[in-house]
Every structure is written in C-alpha cells, then in structure tokens.
Amino acid sequence: MKLLRGFLWLLAFQLLGHATVELLSLPVSHAMAGLLLLLAWLLVKRRLNESVATASQALIPLLAMLIMPGVVGVFFVIDEFAGHWTAIMLALVVGTFLSVLTTLLLMRRFMPREAVDTETRNRQL
C-alpha cells in the first residue's frame, strides 16, 4: 500500500507539473516540472514522506529499462542520418573531451581544499 500511495503522489505531482507548464506555457517537460515541484515541496516540508521514498526507490532503478525502447530506434535511423554520422561522431568525441577537460579545470580551481584533508584524515583514523 505504501508503494501505491507513493506512486499516487508521484502521479499527482506530474499532473501538477502538467497543469503548471500548460497554464504558464513554460518551455520544460511536464515530468521535469513535476520533479521541481516535488523537490520544492520536500524542501519546504523538510521531511521525506515514507511512501514517496518507497515509490521512488522502486521506480528509479527501472529508468534504464524504460529508456531502452527509445535506444532501440538508433538502429532504425542509421539510414535517415546517412552522411551526417562523421559530423555527429566528431561532435560527440571532441565535444565530450573538451567539456570533461573544462569541468575538471573549473572544479580544481574552485573546490576548497580543506574538506579533502578532513576526508583523508578520517580515512586514516
């Protein structure tokens, strides 16, 4: 029952997200708006509803399976994008290389050091 109750909460927040997006014509998806609304609600309440936690623990591991049917489509659009694959692969490889490099450099520049030391100390104790 906890699972069902939590699932109903998630559906309610998705519907709330749906209504918000349509009423304000926001450029985000309904589920994304639901995520943000649920997060805001949790932050305001400062307490995690047990049934919501149960439902999310049940659903999140299924995400990989749920996107799989979309991934299958890749094998059917190979012809559709013929002639663009070199550009696509170059964009993915070079783009990802550059963005990983940038993130690492940025984080190294801005991440405070002390916390690392505490962590290492804790590990040694």
Binding site: L10, F13, Q14, H30, A31, G34, L35, L42, L43, L59
Partner: peptide, 24 residues
C-alpha cells in the same frame, strides 16, 4: 513496437518525478 510499448514507457513520467527524492 514503439506504439505498443508506450504502455510501459508511460512510467517514465512518474519515474522522472521520483528523481526529486535523491536530489532532496
């Protein structure tokens, strides 16, 4: 296949909303 499997992938919506929990 895509039309029929939509019965299952409908769950993507609430599963996405559920991502608020680990973030919280």
């Amino acid at each position: 296949y895509q039309r029929n499997v939509a019965w299952l992938t409908l769950l993507l919506g609430p599963a996405t909303v559920a991502l608020a929990v680990p973030l919280y």
